[in-house]
């Protein structure tokens, strides 16, 4: 098991390096520097600013010193928020994003798996059609449409729930979490359904039934383990999707999280903040992919044995 994890971590390093390199040079080659929007900056001031942020040095040297800082966990200063470091900005935005992501993941997994299991146990009945139609709506209703619609219906028309903010009024976390989680609940429902149907048609389920086991034992003890493996493997990509979804959701609901910072940084050409948050996101995504891969492999005894644990 440890060897498997180690090899996956080793594989993650080139990924991170590519991400950092690509982002760094993309951002540097972008037309229009961070200070070009402020009109009529005195050349001396501009040069002083550039020196302060080391923009006057050769590109490779800049890259080198950025990498060195990064290894020490230092994302550097922000261009647009003078006096604040990227570390501080990430630290300020991350809690809200993490909380939102966690709730959304919870919504996705709980709703999605429940719907998928119910559908798979009653194929081609209304208990199948209703959740699966809902899942289809979830897939065809993108986050940036679902969010405003929910705001319109539950916030503005029915006035049941607050329309924006995060942790300011009670209940203001409900709509963003549902909005972000809905699409993934839909994907997970479909995955769970097809995974469970596949497993339920296996010979060993027939064996379990022939043993006279109660239906809940057949479903939850014998079938679910195999049926959730595709779902677990999907959690990694789902997490990456949730992060990019948070750009939109945090903007719509004015959640003070990293996603909103990132979108603003992109518009402001705040080099170091873009770089910093991209690297931060990439690390998160790589870690989550790793976790979901390891978990999926661990759920399968055959693979687990191959991974070197008994």
């Amino acid at each position: 098991m440890w060897r498997f994890i180690a090899s996956r971590v080793l594989q993650a390093i080139p990924v991170l390096f590519i991400v950092i390199t690509l982002t760094f040079f993309l951002v540097r080659f972008a037309p229009g520097g961070p200070f070009s929007t402020e009109k009529a900056v005195v050349p001396e001031v501009k040069r002083a600013l550039e020196a302060q942020y080391q923009l006057d040095q050769p590109l490779l040297a800049q890259f080198g010193s950025y990498l060195t800082d990064l290894v020490h966990g230092d994302f550097g200063p922000s261009f647009k928020y003078p006096g604040r470091t990227v570390n501080e900005l990430i630290a300020a935005g991350f809690p809200a994003t993490a909380e939102l992501g966690l709730y959304a993941l919870l919504v996705a997994v709980v709703l999605g798996m429940a719907a998928g299991i119910v559908a798979a146990l009653n194929p081609n009945s209304w208990r199948d059609y209703v959740p699966m139609s809902a899942a289809m709506i979830g897939i065809c209703m993108p986050t940036f449409l679902l969010g405003p619609l929910l705001v319109l219906i539950f916030g503005l028309w029915l006035e049941w729930l607050p329309v924006s903010g995060w942790g300011e009024v009670s209940g203001d976390k409900i709509l963003p979490s549902i909005t972000l989680g809905a699409a993934y609940a839909a994907y997970i429902a479909r995955l769970t359904r097809s995974g469970m149907l596949e497993v339920l048609s296996q010979d060993y389920i027939r064996t379990a039934r022939a043993k006279g086991l109660p239906e809940y034992v057949v479903v939850f003890k014998h079938a679910l383990r195999g049926g959730v493996i595709p779902v677990v493997a999907f959690l990694g990509p789902a997490f990456a999707g949730l992060l990019s979804g948070s750009f939109v959701v945090e903007t719509i609901f004015q959640v003070p999280g990293l996603g909103r910072f990132f979108v603003q940084a992109a518009f402001n050409r705040d080099y170091t903040l873009i770089l910093g948050s991209t690297v931060f996101f990439a690390v998160l995504i790589v870690v989550f992919n790793l976790l979901s891969d390891v978990l999926a492999a661990w759920l399968n005894p055959r693979l687990r044995a191959g991974l070197g644990v008994k």
Partner: peptide, 10 residues
Amino acid sequence: DPMTSLNPFL
């Protein structure tokens, strides 16, 4: 088929 009739996860 004894290969598929036992639950591989248990």
